[in-house]
Design a protein around this nucleic acid. Structure first.
Lengths: 210, 210
DNA sequence: CTACATTTGTGACGAAATTCACAAACCGGC
DNA sequence: GCCGGTTTGTGAATTTCGTCACAAATGTAG
């Protein structure tokens, strides 16, 4: 029932959940048609996406909003808290950690590291910035599960390897390189330059065509 | 030769370019095999991706590094400067604008807007933050081509519509909603919550399987 | 209880992207 | 100039993803 799930399906699930959170009608139901309208997709796609994970939803009625919501949270793995560490207290790292939705969705920042001596010891959010040299010990103690990697490209491989060594389960990678970690460790790349380039590409294409 | 290009191809092109920039060997050549090794893909995929845009590269030899680099820049539309405006001078917008690669790649921030009176008039980077109410006039004067939209979800639709009205060509959207703009206007969504959820999903899946 | 109006879940189909495999092109050496 | 070793470019096969269409299930009205 739940084998190879397309990445695009996961992104849509996330989007469905976002739509459902805008719903106030607690006890109500929602049809695949309605979800599709909010999500730039089709009703069939919504049903197919959900069917990968079982069949909740009643024929003739639709999906119960509250149930679907908690199912999606479970599927996406956000029905439990995650212990997160930020490595690299630069602009991007800070922006993310102070992002209000971050904590609200169960991502709990339990440690922040940086290698810059000027930053070590200062506070950020409710954490004191630790020396990156103490990364292994601290991550093990604090049982960090997830690392947000926001360091320069040169340092990224090293940090990733060390984090994986002490049992981290996944990495959100802002460094513009492909990390070389064992395949069992999921890595999600976020690359703002790539997004900008995709945009300028699309514009250039549109100009040529039009 | 260059019709419907998959989004995944564009992302890979961007990645190839990043790899090539790490190359010092100016006059040298690189094979699809080598590019694939750096890019988490296959040699055939590299060749197929490039073949969408013509056939540069010499059989038996590979691709000339400097030529491929400039070709990719042209394809991605970054062989010319882009006039960019930032709307929303919050954490995310600031992080992006101060990102060193940003300007280095030809994205020139020519205006910053915010609706918060406390922020209007303050400086950010080399710009003074303008009142969002003056958006139309300023964008037209400054010939803004590209908008980075980093405002709360409630305001995003309105700002997007107004920007499109005064001739903006594309939008990099950080608001967690699907913008409702004419299809001729490319929109690139960046959604950090979605990335985190994709990551926790992948981890949960890996745990179930392993 | 029956007829009817909905809406899901899913197998069959079609489109799209990736991989395969190989002929054509190129270089260097002799 | 020709041969051998390489590597591209690309049609064809394969795999993956999205769409369609419809039977099965459910609620409602009478």
């Amino acid at each position: 029932m739940t084998r190879k799930i397309p990445q695009s399906t996961v992104r849509r699930l996330s989007h469905y959940l976002r739509s459902l959170e805008g719903f106030e009608d607690e006890g109500g139901t929602v049809s695949s048609e309605e979800l599709a309208a909010r999500g730039q997709t089709t009703a069939a796609q919504v049903r197919k996406d959900l069917s990968h994970f079982g069949s909740f939803g009643k024929r003739g009625l639709g999906y119960r909003v509250d149930e679907l919501r908690s199912r999606l949270r479970h599927i996406l793995g956000i029905d439990r808290p995650w212990r997160v560490a930020l490595v690299g207290a630069g602009r991007i790292g800070r922006a993310l950690i102070e992002y209000p939705d971050f904590r609200a969705r169960g991502y709990e920042c339990v440690a922040i590291f940086d290698s810059d001596p000027d930053k070590v010891g200062r506070r950020l959010g409710d954490q004191t910035i630790r020396d990156a040299a103490t990364l292994e010990e601290a991550m093990e103690d604090l049982q960090v599960e997830l690392v947000i990697l926001a360091v320069p490209a040169e340092a990224a491989h090293d940090v990733a390897a060390r984090a994986v060594d002490v049992g981290v389960k996944g990495i959100l990678n802002f460094a513009p390189i492909r990390l070389n970690v064992p395949p069992r460790i999921p890595v999600q790349d976020v690359n703002l330059v790539m997004e900008l380039e995709a945009l300028s590409f699309a514009i250039s294409q549109a100009e040529e065509a039009g």
